[in-house]
């Protein structure tokens, strides 16, 4: 009798717990993969494909499922790698390729034939134009991913290094080789 009571009691508890869990999984259901979202949020969103995946979100999905390594994002560099490794709880890995300095695509308009192939290739819709019309790159939207260079049949797209402007200048760390050259010793001039 006692055994029957114990079995019923435990079985009943297990059933109740199961129902609670089943309800909770419905009520608190999260759409999508939260880990993928969090990894996607630390990626630089250049959509450049240097990781071997067609964009940042596919790479984030691959990392979240454990399929891809954490060190594949080239433009994200060490900072993105450390953030992903931290999220995934795996040891950090050296980023193999060094990121190129920030670049912008530039279309030499007098050579453009208006084929729209670069417009189709741009992952962030940063190129405007229409068939048989000149195309141009919207500077403020270009991520410098270089994906538009390859499809151009007349090779009229250049990747230019992003101009350094005073507003975006920041102090370099103390002790690091300073890029600022002092004028005091060489070409001191008196106006």
């Amino acid at each position: 009798m006692n055994i029957l009571m114990a079995v019923l009691l435990l079985g009943g508890l297990a059933l109740a717990a199961g129902i609670v869990l089943a309800v909770a999984s419905r009520v608190f259901h999260v759409e999508g993969d939260p880990m993928m979202e969090r990894i996607d949020a630390v990626l630089p969103q250049t959509q450049c494909g240097q990781c071997g995946y067609p964009g940042c979100k596919p790479y984030a999905t691959a990392v979240a499922s454990g399929e891809a390594d954490v060190n594949k994002c080239v433009p994200g560099g060490e900072r993105a790698m450390l953030a992903i490794a931290d999220l995934m709880g795996v040891p950090p890995k050296e980023v193999e390729e060094e990121a190129a300095p920030p670049m912008l695509a530039y279309i030499r308009e007098d050579e453009c034939i208006g084929c729209t192939l670069c417009i189709k290739a741009c992952p962030v819709d940063a190129i405007i134009g229409a068939p048989k019309q000149y195309h141009t790159v919207v500077e403020s939207h270009c991520t410098g991913c270089t994906l538009c260079v390859e499809p151009c049949p007349v090779d009229c797209i250049d990747m230019l290094s992003k101009p350094e402007v005073l507003e975006e200048w920041t102090w370099s760390a103390p002790g690091k080789a300073s890029l600022v050259k002092l004028e005091g010793d060489s070409d001191a001039r008196v106006a």
Binding site: D40, L43, P44, Q45, T46, Q47, G55, C56, K57, P123, V124, D125, A126, H141, T143
Partner: peptide, 8 residues
């Protein structure tokens, strides 16, 4: 990056 993500 947020902007690029939205555009993409």
């Amino acid at each position: 990056a947020e902007l690029s993500k939205a555009r993409s």
